[in-house]
Design a protein around this nucleic acid. Structure first.
Length: 284
DNA sequence: CAAGTTACCTGACGGC
DNA sequence: TGCCGTCAGGTAACTT
């Protein structure tokens, strides 16, 4: 479900419902998520606290409390967060429930439990947050992420450009869908070695990544099976997919049949005519 | 060190 | 109807 646009949509949708609210209670399913979470410790740190901010960094949500404590939440493949009336029946795979002071509940639901909730206790929150994100690459929509930065990071990397832009240590927030979409929209073959991309082409690709991500956010994200925003509505960027999931269909630009292959273990879709070949020589 | 592989988990779907 | 294999939006921890 959630790449940068979906996490951003959830973040924006949740913000008015939870900022300035107080956490009155917390309950947990006690099922293992990606990383262990001590529910009692979380209660000790954030129960009774006012939530002062909610923001997104990479595919993480950061929830800050007045006392300085912080929750860092990752949605994995199937995670979601939503607001529900207090006491509404729990859904299957609801794992954490934060009761707020206005008879509503913030809930974390995650079918596959690849998601995680990290607790940063107040005393160490600031330093732990820095450590937590130390190795994460810049936000694609920020100025820190530039064509020259990407060109530099790609030097000597024979890795496929698709895997390279999906590497969160290089650039944050790009997953399989948006990597496929951005490369198609830029006429770059997903298997082309990252080091063979010129700075000019990086400029073009970064521009395309930004445009695609922003468009997806405006569309409320992509709903493939069950993604919904904080109000329970699906996104519709999937209507704008040009390549992802379209193997066997005609390319929008040249009518060639779209191919599917596996790169770095992930489904990769491309137009063999528009996206040149993997040699890196025929690309601008 | 880079890059490839495995593991974590549930559910949907197609083939038999 | 049901069993089995395959696949899915992510990423850390392995191995090569």
């Amino acid at each position: 479900m959630p790449e940068l646009p979906e996490v951003e949509v959830i973040c924006q949708g949740l913000r008015p419902h939870i900022v300035n609210r107080r956490i009155m209670g917390i309950s947990c399913s006690n099922k293992q998520l990606r990383f262990p979470l001590d529910c009692r410790e979380m209660r000790g740190e954030v129960k009774g606290q006012e939530i002062i901010s909610l923001r997104r960094r990479a595919k993480y949500l950061l929830l800050k409390m007045k006392n300085g404590a912080c929750l860092i939440i990752h949605l994995g493949m199937t995670g979601n967060m939503g607001i529900f009336p207090q006491g509404a029946p729990l859904k299957k795979h609801d794992h954490i429930c934060w009761t707020l002071d206005n008879n509503t509940e913030l809930r974390f639901n995650d079918t596959r439990r690849f998601g995680a909730v990290h607790l940063l206790p107040a005393e160490v929150a600031e330093s732990h947050e820095k450590t937590f994100f130390a190795a994460i690459g810049p936000e694609p929509l920020s100025r820190a992420c530039s064509a020259s930065y990407l060109k530099k990071r790609a030097a000597n990397r024979k890795q496929a450009v698709k895997n390279f832009i999906m590497d969160s240590h290089v650039i944050a927030g790009i997953g399989n869908i948006y990597a496929n979409e951005a490369l198609f929209r830029c006429n770059i073959h997903p298997a082309q070695p990252a080091s063979s991309i010129s700075e000019k082409k990086w400029r073009q690709l970064l521009g395309t990544i930004r445009k695609t991500l922003k468009h997806a956010i405006e569309c409320g994200g992509s709903t493939i099976s069950d993604f919904v925003n904080a109000s329970g509505e699906g996104g519709y960027f999937q209507m704008n997919f040009q390549i992802y999931g379209k193997s066997g269909e005609e390319c929008l630009r040249c009518q060639e049949i779209i191919q599917k292959t596996t790169i770095g273990g992930r489904a990769s879709f491309f137009c063999p005519k528009c996206q040149h070949d993997a040699s890196g020589e025929s690309v601008i």
